[in-house]
Amino acid sequence: MSEEICCGLKVGQKVPDFEMDTFEPSKGDFGKFSLKKAKKAGKWTILFFYPADFTFV
């Protein structure tokens, strides 16, 4: 694992570009989220982590 994706970004730091697979309920299909693409589109990104599916919400 490279250094920059190691252990906890702090506010004020640049977030390294990353991609991840998604399920997109609005399309009923799988997709990908790309920080690079969000940035290119001039969008803000809000990441909302939670422990696990099928647990209390």
């Binding site: 969008k43 803000w44 809000i46 990441l47 909302f48 982590f49 422990p51």
Partner: peptide, 13 residues
């Protein structure tokens, strides 16, 4: 854990 992060369009956390 339940973490929430806001990233600006220029990629700053």
């Amino acid at each position: 854990l339940r973490g929430t992060f806001i990233i600006s369009p220029d990629g700053t956390l």
